[in-house]
Amino acid sequence: MKTSLAYPRVYLSPGDFHFATEPTRISTVLGSCIAVTLWHPQRRIGAMCHFMLPNRRIRGNRLSGKYADEAFEMFMLEVESHRTLPGDYEVKLFGGGEMFPRHKTALVSAVPDMNIEAALQLAEQYHLNVTAQDIGRTGHRNIVFDTWNGDVWVKHKPLHQC
């Protein structure tokens, strides 16, 4: 087997989505955003999104990975196009950290919680098997997802309040 350095690497910025059919390392950095990983253990294919908000008020012509509901639709389109079933995938959820706990406003405090709720609700709606999660609290997370084995590495840096 090749070392992880030999596999393609993809970095997700906020709003990005990537589905890999070959061994790939997908990474991102999260604050209040959420990353969702899907991995098919038999086929060893998988995807990750980095969404920023639960939904948008006015739907566009194209799906956008910036929004939880649309990112999950993108997952389902890939699941269908690869002739697999949603329940065949292991799903992991990350992020939703409060980034400004000392500067609480209704909107700043609500975004991480709304993102977490959307991710959990959509996973249930699509009958996805959530096998792991590291969500909430404060601070940011670095996420690395290896599609060749389904491993997700998380480095969480919480904010310390004085």
Rank of each mutant, 00 (worst) to 15 (best):
K66Y: 14
P41Y: 12
M48H: 04
L85P: 03
G60M: 04
G65P: 03
R57S: 15
Y67T: 07
P86Q: 01
H40L: 04
C49H: 01
E73V: 02
F72E: 10
H50M: 06
P86C: 04
M76E: 06
C49N: 09
R59P: 08
P41M: 07
N61Y: 10
E70R: 02
E73D: 13
Q42C: 07
C49R: 03
R59F: 01
E80W: 00
I58Y: 05
R83I: 08
R59Q: 15
M52A: 07
S64V: 09
I58C: 13
F75G: 12
L77W: 00
E70A: 02
M76Q: 14
G46Q: 00
E78A: 13
L63D: 11
P41G: 03
V79D: 05
H82Q: 07
M48N: 14
R56C: 15
G60D: 10
N61S: 15
C49A: 03
E78C: 03
P86S: 01
A68T: 02
I45F: 06
A71F: 01
S81G: 03
K66H: 14
H40P: 03
S64H: 10
F72A: 09
C49F: 04
S64W: 01
S64L: 08
L85V: 13
L63E: 09
L85N: 14
R59L: 10
E78G: 06
K66M: 08
L85T: 14
R59Y: 00
V79Y: 07
